[in-house]
Design a protein around this nucleic acid. Structure first.
Lengths: 222, 222
DNA sequence: CGGCTCGTTGAGGTCGGTCAATTCCTGTGG
DNA sequence: CCACAGGAATTGACCGACCTCAACGAGCCG
């Protein structure tokens, strides 16, 4: 269940630190901890949310199976990690996990790597929320999801999104109505198709990247 | 110059990896690297900026002396680390520094710690940019700066900001005019005083925190 | 002291938010 | 398998916070 970077006895050492959480869709994996927490998401999908006030919540990050997630203890704002679908996770007190990981370079390497990945994504989110239009934000979101959970289909890509329009809105700093309108526009422009509530087919990744305002890469499509 | 967590010969090993950069105010510490970069900012102050397009830039983070800064290689967007005042920095290729740090737990610990601190700040920025009004954003910014570079003065706090109004605006996802107006309003409400371009005196940290929409903490003032 | 950038202030415009009504899924139970 | 209920998503009309554009004034450097 843990990443296979450690021998069995070491693995047991780590598992002794964590508590297993099996959570239904919509349930809370971590909330209101008094200490920073690290969560290994073994299966499922989750959103890390923060509360700007009682009725304004910001989705700070989406996470999927295999991700190592840092959930901060409340400081200026309170955080919670909520399951978007049925999920299995192992929850660790950050301090204890880090002090044990000190003895195990491979584990530490993985922790650092996941921290920098989260940092890079969080910064990208700042750019998107801070300086992009609604259409650009939605395009960025779609491309990011394609990169993480997209199923290739020829030169196209199919998304089965575990999150609702509200989650997307709360992630992009917009409203559900705006998300809906932008998806409608993208559909009207022939860039995407939608089927049901959670399936979106990306028809032209290059055009989508252009409309997201991404740097032009000659060969890759993320 | 490097954090004193390593013995002398180890320190030499690290310094061999990095290149020293002495940069004037406004100069570029790191830009357009093809590889992820880690920067130890020995003195001065800097902004990490990303370009949403040619004329839209987002300040992703502010950094001060002692900070260890991760500068991503360009992917969807390009990044640059720019000096806000005369600065001294050591620039490392991230991969090499990490592989050497694998052998030195104390160094690795410091790297992880700085990564999580940056991650936490970046997430707070997402909350602020995504779900707060102009006034709340400015209040959050002032409190954050008070925490990092504020000089206590009784129960007040004085800030000497190294960044311009434009930098603040580009950090908060606003315009310079809005920053100026909000600071004017805060001054009118008796929460701050301003002197010259870069000095701001915070007169009532609790009221400022309330107006930033932060969780109420009984004893601390961040 | 002069020049010039940076910051402030004002007037008007716009993108996305708000409120409200309608339609569409989806999962539940017959 | 189909009908139904209830929430989710879409669509439309209007509004407002912040942006844009423009002019003015203040602070900093030579």
């Amino acid at each position: 269940m843990l990443p296979s970077v450690a021998a069995d006895e070491v693995l047991a050492q780590f598992e002794a630190l964590g508590r297993l959480r099996i959570v239904a869709s919509g349930g809370s994996i971590v909330a209101e901890e008094s200490e920073d927490t690290l969560v290994y998401l073994a299966s499922g999908a989750a959103k890390l949310v923060a509360f700007a006030s009682q009725d304004r919540e910001q989705v700070v990050a989406f996470h999927f199976a295999g991700d190592l997630i840092s959930v901060p203890a409340p400081r200026a704002h309170a955080y919670a990690l909520l399951a978007l679908r049925a999920s299995e996770a192992i929850v660790f007190p950050a301090g204890e996990l880090l002090s044990v990981a000190h003895e195990h370079p491979a584990m530490m390497g993985r922790i650092v790597c996941s921290a920098y990945t989260s940092l890079r994504r969080s910064r990208e989110k700042s750019i998107v929320i801070g300086r992009k239009t609604a259409r650009e934000r939605v395009a960025c979101f779609l491309i990011s999801m394609a990169d993480r959970i997209g199923l290739p289909e020829g030169n196209r890509c199919v998304l089965h999104l575990p999150m609702s329009r509200r989650d997307i809105a709360d992630s992009l700093g917009l409203t559900i109505e705006t998300i809906s309108r932008q998806l409608g526009d993208l559909r009207g422009d022939g860039l995407i198709e939608t089927a049901g509530r959670s399936t979106i087919r990306l028809l032209d990744l290059a055009a989508l990247a252009a409309c997201a305002g991404h740097l032009i890469k000659q060969s890759s499509q993320i």
